[in-house]
Amino acid sequence: MIALVRNEVMKILLKKKMPLIMILLLIFVGLLSYGQNYAYERNIDQFEAESGETAFDWQGLTTQRLDELEERSQNEAIPGEVRASFDREIEQLNYFIENDINPVTPTAAKFNVSFAEQGITLFIPLLIAILAADLVSSEFSRKTIKILLTRAVPRWKVLLSKYIALLIMTTLLVFIIGITTTLVSYLFFQEWGFSEPIVTGFTLFEGTLNSDSTILIPRYQYTLLIYSLVWFVSIIVASITLLISLIVDTSASAIGILMAALIGGQFLQFFLSDWELVKYFFVTNLDLTRYLTGSYQPVEGMSLNFSILILSVWAIGSIAISFIVFNRRDVLV
């Protein structure tokens, strides 16, 4: 079995998918971080021009906000949990002032997270699809499936080895995405920012976001959490792509179908958000990171656990169907 997995990993590597993915990633990340840096510098310039100050006085603004928060947190009338969330913001702002860090400067740690947040619904699934789409379909289109399936190995083992190889490559790819976004954006921003504190841990209560349970953690931990969610989503997408790749004959149609599902799903979410069924579609649940950032309008009945459950059901269903189809399929190429 290990030999089979090794073979499949070798096939993926030799097919030169990774360089293609790397090039796409580098172009995208390079453009985005350049753009973000440019926008930031322009904003600062504009601010300075308007206010007539020679330097952007972030300390002033931050201190002002800090005083305001401290004043409110003294207020007896404010309930305890609310005060706790003020305190967390105060702590966060104090860190920025003590370490002389402008809270709005772009940093590599912020960029890799926002890249993951933006990419998790479309761009990252696309990269996964490039990896996964021809896993099975290319064996059919190159007709090599014949030499693969006439060995003394049962079919389910062949497919399982392909799936495990795909999981291995997906895991590496998520890591590569994280590393690339961090390194490339550091080139532009010249700031790591991994030790800055950030607020997370929003919970849903009665259909609304609840920040009572929030905690303050350093950015590097936060990045790890975000990328773990990206990893999970990637595995789900890989599993679904595997099924698509098994049903259609060419990798181009497999990528096409997946992209159509992703974009169509977002349309559905946008236009038919009231429709109960939409929240059971996998695309609607891909954006797991928003549950950590707390930057979303909660949808009735959707939570991190709900989304994870729905995605798992989709992935397990896809894998099950894949094995059934693959086991029964007549090879007539």
């Binding site: 097919k15 190159r142 090599t144 014949k146 006439t150």
Partner: peptide, 10 residues
């Protein structure tokens, strides 16, 4: 079966 189809990238 029907021609020697191999992995031609190896």
């Amino acid at each position: 079966i029907e021609g020697p189809d191999l992995y031609d990238y190896m």
